[in-house]
Design a protein around this nucleic acid. Structure first.
Lengths: 117, 117
DNA sequence: CCCGTGTATCGACGAATGTCGAATCAGAGG
DNA sequence: CCTCTGATTCGACATTCGTCGATACACGGG
């Protein structure tokens, strides 16, 4: 069994407490890289802030200037980074954000502050 | 005067509260992209966790398998993303992490949780 | 003033990335 | 069964990125 990201990083390991080892860094950088594109960041935000916690792809496409295939590509990147999950219901596909994944990344960057219990 | 990132994003605007507009997204994605490389993530962590809150470039170079110019390049990327600042003191250059920048990114990802005061 | 050492910049190159149009797959409904 | 619509995959292309060696810059010390 491969270690989950959560196992590797731990629940409360801010970047500033101790140096990341190479493996942790590779793991985390994959997630941050997924956030390193404006379209993906907006997609994630649209999904996470959407009523009901999920959004249909058809609602996402109209917001951007890029084509459908490009949206699809970005959703795949977010999905493979573990930041969102997708589910098909009939004709439409709905995506929702993974709060645990976001929180994990947030905690890594939370320097200096005590981690809320 | 150009708006600072902190002004654009606000101090407590998580991704999931409301959709990021295009400008915010471009701004934030630049920072996350800087974190989207394993070497840069380890560099940042080494700097942030180093005693005294700062680290000399000479101490960073030995940790990695990459050459000096490459380290220099990654430090530049982190610097231009506003995540670290560099200062020359005599022969050596010392870098330190910017806690505000890290906290700002952390807060953006802190979904659902109340922001600690 | 000239080295020697620590950093940074430059120029180049292969690999990865973002984007598109065309083609394909998945379901719903005649 | 056929077709229409929504979503993904495929193949291609220009751009960006990470890396290196060579070179240039900044200081401190003989």
């Amino acid at each position: 069994m491969v270690a989950e990201p959560a196992d590797v990083v731990g629940c409360c390991s801010p970047l500033a407490r101790e140096p990341l080892d190479a493996e942790q860094a590779v793991d985390l950088s994959r997630s941050f890289k997924a956030l390193g594109d404006p379209v993906r960041l907006r997609l994630l935000s649209l999904i996470a802030s959407h009523e009901g916690g999920e959004a249909c792809v058809c609602e996402l496409t109209d917001t951007f200037e890029v084509t459908g295939p490009t949206i699809s590509h970005h959703l795949k990147v977010l999905r493979e980074a573990g930041l969102i999950t997708g589910e098909r219901r009939g004709t439409w596909v709905y995506y929702r954000a993974d709060p645990d994944a976001l929180r994990r990344l947030s905690d890594v960057l939370a320097t200096g502050r005590p981690i809320p219990a």
